[in-house]
Design a protein around this nucleic acid. Sequence first.
DNA 1: GTAGGGTTAG
Length: 585
Amino acid sequence: MRRGGLAVDGFTVSTVVSAVTGITSVAQLHGYAVMSGLDSYVSVKNSLMSGYGKGMLLEEAERLFADMGDSTRTHVSWNCIIAVYGQHGHGRKAMELFQDMARRGFTADACTLASVLSAFATSRDLVAGTELHCRLIKGKFICDPHVASGLVDLYAKCGSIQDAWKSFSEVDKPDLVLWNTLISGYSLHKDFSEEALLSFRAMQRAGFCPDDCSFVCVISGYSNMSSPSQGQQIHAVVIKSDIQSSHISVHNAMITLYSRCGKVSEAKMLFDRLTERNTVSYNSIIAGLAQHGHAAEALKLFEGMLNSGYEPTGVTFISVLSACAYSGKVDEGWGYFNSMKQTYGIDPCEEHYSCMIDLLGRAKKFKEVEELIMKMPFSLTSVGWTPLLGACRTHGNMELGARAAREILHLSPSNSSAPVVLSNMYASAGRWEEAAKVRKLMRDRGIKKKPGCSWIELGRIIHVFVASEVSHPRIKEVYRFLEGMSEKMRLAGYVPDVRWALAKDQAAEGEMRLRHHSEKLAVAFGLMNTKEREPILVLKNLRICGDCHNAIKIISGITHREITVRDAHRFHCFSDGSCSCRDYW
DNA sequence: GTAGGGTTAG
């Protein structure tokens, strides 16, 4: 351009700067602007501020803004710095500037509000966000798609999905991004996966052509549904849409979708075929492999990732540490945990500590767990206490388990799984009175146990089984089938483990209850209704019970079937009488 | 010249 003899003005530099996201380029352009005197243009300063913000260099942006002073600033300068604070998750700071701006006589526009709201969404600040929303209700701004998407995003990320929908419905003509925000909001909530799909279709009916982001959002909604046939269906839609070749994030979402549907080998194939990868691609496949118990492969891939020059992130380490936890690799886990800070400059957050607690707890190293908790730079929330409680149950550490359960109940009083686990622990140790006390506490507080349910998809129909419930139309056949198999199971070494029966049952009654566990019913139904040797997949909302785990191992041996059960934590792949988790879970 | 949505874990 310069060689062609055309003048480079402030506007050109602004345009170029805003098109550049890499920080080195922004710094270079900044240098160029200073040298050529173009930095006297406000528009250039504004764009440089945005450029620095996108490059996560908050201080540089702040310096530019401070140097400008009130005489140079325009309302766009204010909008830019507010957006930068939003990108860094500083909601309250964005709000302060928003108020400051008004005090100094600058008028806020839709652009300003969209940025402030997005800042609150990023910082999950429902209180401040709602306050701002209330002040907007009388005005025209809530009908602006940019402002509305800030509201939808805020409410969805803070868990108020109904309010997200309300904010969406205020807008007469939603644009593509607003639709995507709604779909993404639904996809964040497991119970609203169906709505994510419905919105995706509604958006198409409204005449919009989904972009890469729409696909990413709807695919992550599908991932929560864990329905293999629907997973394949959306893959077909992606391929047909022709969007797939160019968008790495769509592929990454598909990798997760296949993993969560129990098809980790398909996920791996997809990953292997990628011509372009990024850190998230690695994070996705490492997570998938870890959840399926392929710890060695996950860790090998992690090493491959490092060798190929990809920088791991905090999320990478969550998968890596959970791979170690699932496979009992204590020393390796410590090595990776320590390398986070030392080698990669990543400060471990509570999730990482929680993985370490899980790793050490499963390995029965409770002393090390307590030391780690003492050394932590913050106090544990239920995120960390939950795996510890699980480990205490596995190893029968009643005292520490009771403490963990108390802490969880204190921190999140409506948590229903902690008291159930605790009362089961007491019950399996024969401490019935204490078990009953916990049950009473649950009743008093109105805490209800989440019913265990398992489901299996056959011919695109999802069959749901709830423990001890007889609502499935063919439930009698299922019981007959299990009855018919019980002798073979006994001969193969199955002994019912009544420690997993709830409450104060007599042994015989406990055994009956075990037989009614939802995962056994779903597995039996699968075996009855599929061809010989056909693998089956069962999904469960809670963790698989120890007795079912043992029973399904034996069933896989006597029926020569590959049976995969995905519970709330991970996948168990049973075949020839053993499980991919090697009984370490 | 400035603004809104996305993938990964638990």
